[in-house]
Design a protein around this nucleic acid. Sequence first.
DNA 1: ATTCCACAGGAAACAGTGGTCC
DNA 2: GGACCACTGTTTCCTGTGGAAT
Length: 402
Amino acid sequence: MSVSDPIDRLLDAAESGKSLIKNRDILHFTYIPDNIQHRNLEQEQVTQSLLPILKKSRPSNLLVYGKPGTGKTLVVRKVISKIQERVEKSNFRIRLVYSNSKEETTLYGLLVSFGRQLGLTDKELPTTGLAISEVFKRILNNINENKINVIFVIDEIDYLAQLISKTGKDILYQLTRANERLNNGSLTLVGISNDLTFKEKLDPRVISTLGEEEIVFTNYSVDQIKKILKERIEEAFIPNSVSESALNLCSALAGGEHGDARRAIDLIRVAGEIAERQQSENISEEHVREASQKIEENKEEASLKSYPLHEKLVILAIIKAGGSSTGEIYSSYKTLCKTVGRDELTQRRVTQMLSEIELSGIINGRLINQGIHGRTKKYKLTISPEMIKKAFKDDLTLQDII
DNA sequence: ATTCCACAGGAAACAGTGGTCC
DNA sequence: GGACCACTGTTTCCTGTGGAAT
């Protein structure tokens, strides 16, 4: 094996190089530190409203608001696990069930994930084929039979509200009324939402039961983020490896946006990884800047890669079409379809795709009225065509047209 | 003042998939 | 094996729109 072999060189460097990060787990937002010092008030409030469960009565339903990365989920989870610890010895059973409505894209999926965590098997609760009301009935039966007290945490409940308004099936209403159908055990709902206005989309009857208690998590200030980062850095990095200026920049970047602690922790983690790779002694401002850029690029590339074929074709059509009005993009898209030998979709569908892609921020649309030449929407790319081609180059069907 | 373009975008229907239940 | 269910991606049909051209 020659010394100049690039793989060997990297491996050697990694072995001899200094490791700045001593505990990677702590650099993930989902990790719950034992000693969360911040959000004391909110921890107290959440505990307060769940307290009745210790006295064997049903706690208040709870709505928790706050922007992403404000620690809502962490606090709720921490409080519930503490309560669980308390009652562990008694035969009074509390079960935490957590579902994220954004990850479960359908009502059915959400209920099934709920049932699975209660221990219902594939057989008792199949992943498809049943009527939603039937799924619901089976879950309630399970709670009844086992006499458990369930706390159902629905994260990003605003997405659920959207699903409900689309399908017209109000499982939230049924969930809030579930206790009337339960002889044994109980069901408490904790809804977590990023959107303070989401209640407007709900049935007023649901709001009155769901919103028995409401807690708002305010955004973190730059100083608070700095404090959080300091705590994590102390645990995760070797001493003196993060410069003060890097810490400040990290807090400023994340705090300036939305007070998002998640982003701050991500940032310092990626900066640490970059610094390690460069064999640096410590993490500097420069590393944080690089990390910030890298996170952005990765996000774009990942979202590009995840598009289905026809969306990719539409994006490529935008590159190929000069002026980029919907009509031009569509005819360019049709040519591309012919080249790769795929059936083309209708213009209506392509318009819809364009709006979806626009939401992700990769393209930018502007409505233009051209008088007798009609009205159209002109689209512009917000990222470089090279970046797109780079992301698409692994797709075999597209290789001929890139 | 009226017409008319080139779409935007909502609503509903439909096809297909993968399942249960009796 | 047929009735039924949820869900996704799509098509079909439709109404609405701002301003140049007439």
